[in-house]
Write a protein that binds this DNA or RNA. Structure first.
Length: 278
DNA sequence: AACCAGGTCCGAT
DNA sequence: ATCGGACATGGT
């Protein structure tokens, strides 16, 4: 089934730029799990083509469309930063890199795990958690859904430690318990203000500024979130502040003034650029 | 063999 | 408010 896209889309950059960790290349397509269904997606003229199972494409199209943010007018972002020479290099190189709209819970767990780790290891841990605690997707051996907060809340911390999660094990157990206390889960924060949503996330044990901003940018539609990790810190410091040391607080302030509602997109391009090309 | 990785928490200034 | 050290583990 075909889905049109507003502007360019590059699945390799979108799904392989360190925002999502459960997609894999398979021939010329990308295969991943959204909710209870497995998707196979590839680029097609003016959009993407996809298959899904066990639910058929007619039933899952909206989920994929939303996930890939096909409605985003990405060209207006490119225009907005056209006068920024550093960012223009990245938008030129990674044209079609989109932010994904992930499930907030899965995104939260993923980035709690990400703390002081690396992409390869994060990918491994997310896969292990799905296999160990998720449900098998119907008629797809070895393919698992992502376990919900109720399931992870009942996993003893020592099991997470056995998986090699280290000190993050405690974070995971606590975060699951805390999310379980929310009457309507994390979804309502899509409608909340950036400030309110961030404050809520920061109240979770194991969630600081960086992880909170990742969840806000990659799952909660908070376009002014600007996650600052080691790579982005270096990029901003060297490319925009002449190498002078800058506090995270100042970077956040600067990012909002400089990029406004495009901050989340700008961050992902800067991150990818810095991580891939140094 | 030190050093680093999409950080956060906590106690001491 | 801000700063340093501790925290687990695996890869260069």
């Amino acid at each position: 089934m075909f889905l049109p896209c507003n502007g360019p889309i590059d699945l390799g950059h979108t799904l392989g730029s360190g925002q999502t960790f459960r997609w894999r290349r398979e021939d010329d397509a990308h295969v991943g799990i959204l909710g209870e269904n497995i998707f196979r997606v590839w680029e097609s003229d003016g959009g993407v083509e996809f298959e899904s199972s066990p639910a058929p494409p007619e039933k899952t199209a909206e989920r994929l469309r939303s996930y890939l943010r096909l409605e985003d007018d990405i060209d207006s972002f490119y225009q907005a930063v056209a006068d920024d020479p550093r960012l223009s290099v990245a938008t030129g190189a990674y044209r079609g890199l989109r932010l994904a709209r992930q499930d907030p819970w899965e995104c939260l767990v993923t980035f709690v795990i990400s703390s002081y780790s690396n992409i390869k290891r994060i990918t491994k841990h997310v896969a292990e958690i799905s296999e160990a605690f998720g449900d098998q997707v119907k008629s797809h051996d070895g393919v698992y859904t992502f376990p919900g907060p109720a399931r992870l809340a009942e996993v003893p911390e020592r099991e997470f430690r056995r998986m090699g999660l280290g000190y993050r094990a405690r974070f995971l157990t606590r975060v699951a318990e805390q999310v379980l206390q929310l009457p309507h889960g994390l979804m309502p924060y899509r409608q909340a203000s950036y400030i309110d949503a961030k404050q809520a996330l920061l109240s979770f044990f194991g969630v600081g500024d960086k992880v909170a901003d990742c969840v806000l940018a990659f799952s909660l539609d908070q376009s002014r979130a600007f996650p600052i990790d080691v790579w982005v810190r270096r990029a901003v410091q060297e490319w925009y502040f002449a190498g002078d040391p800058v506090s995270d607080r100042d970077i956040r302030q600067w990012a909002f003034e400089h990029f406004g509602e495009y901050a989340s997109y700008a961050q992902q391009y800067l991150f990818h650029r810095r991580r891939v090309d140094g």
